[in-house]
Design a protein around this nucleic acid. Structure first.
Length: 254
DNA sequence: ATGGCAATAGAGTATTGA
């Protein structure tokens, strides 16, 4: 079984890419972030035609998350019930006995901003909620755009990014706090190439120069980590015409 | 030091992203 995550940066613009990628990579579960679509505009028919069930929760202009699955989706929850949030950033569902959480963590903008405060509060509430969820769902995976590079290996130029948003100590500590719940970064369970990233700035030839960050992650509970045999970033769609600035991440479970 | 690209809303340019 393969489970994946991809920040598509507008599903309206990226629908053809999504369908092409699924044809090339028929994963069992795919979590999407930044769909930027209200629910009435969500392309259900196209996704069903590709062989996927889908749950989604969106809004205009910003945010928006979705879960695609070959197997039926049940017990859908929108957003963290512990955190009142007008922004549509979380979707949870049960698929094949697994609890799948799709997350679009706030960006934070800058370390001294209100958005940074929101990001940290949001992450602390996520931790509290996951702690609870994991008591009732042994097989849990949380996939998404965390907007945090876990450590300097995940940053193209650690000196340039030191202390900046996405790399600051408080954000990294918030991610570590999720690991301490027993959630493992599946990517780091395996040997990986140096300078492996999942996002590259559109500007300054960021992708061509591999000026990237690894900020999209698949965290697995212990039972799922034990079944995990691979985790990889697929850079291919980042090379397509008019790409998302993020690449998909795929974990393989036995 | 700044902005550089892209998407969106909406009609010129501002906001946000990472």
């Amino acid at each position: 079984m393969k489970i994946a995550t991809w920040n598509v940066n507008s599903l309206k613009v990226r629908l053809a890419h999504l369908l092409q990628w699924l044809a090339d990579n028929p994963v069992d579960v795919l979590c999407l972030q930044e769909t930027k679509l209200t629910d009435d505009k969500f392309p259900v028919a196209e996704i069903n035609a590709a062989g996927y069930h889908v749950a989604f929760s969106g809004q205009k202009t910003y945010n928006g998350v979705a879960i695609l699955s070959k197997l039926p989706i049940t017990d859908v929850v929108k957003n963290n019930p512990r955190y009142e949030d007008a922004q549509q950033r979380i979707l949870a569902a049960t698929i094949d006995g697994m609890r799948i959480v799709c997350a679009y963590v706030p960006n934070g903008q800058a370390v001294d901003s209100d958005k940074y405060v929101y990001k940290l509060a949001w992450l602390e509430s996520l931790r509290e909620w996951l702690d609870e969820e994991m008591r009732t769902h042994e097989h849990l995976a949380i996939l998404g755009d965390y907007n945090i590079a876990p450590d300097d290996r995940d940053v193209h130029d650690p000196a340039e990014w030191a202390g900046q948003v996405l790399c600051s100590d408080k954000e990294r500590a918030a991610l570590l706090a999720l690991n301490e719940l027993g959630l493992v970064d599946s990517f780091r369970m395996f040997e990986q190439d140096e300078k492996s990233f999942s996002w590259w700035d559109y500007r300054m030839l960021g992708f061509r120069r591999n000026r990237g960050l690894r900020i999209d992650h698949i965290l697995l509970s212990k039972t799922l980590a034990a079944r995990c045999t691979a985790c990889a970033i697929d850079r291919v769609p980042r090379k397509w015409e008019q790409p998302s600035d993020h690449a998909p991440v795929i974990a393989t479970l036995d």
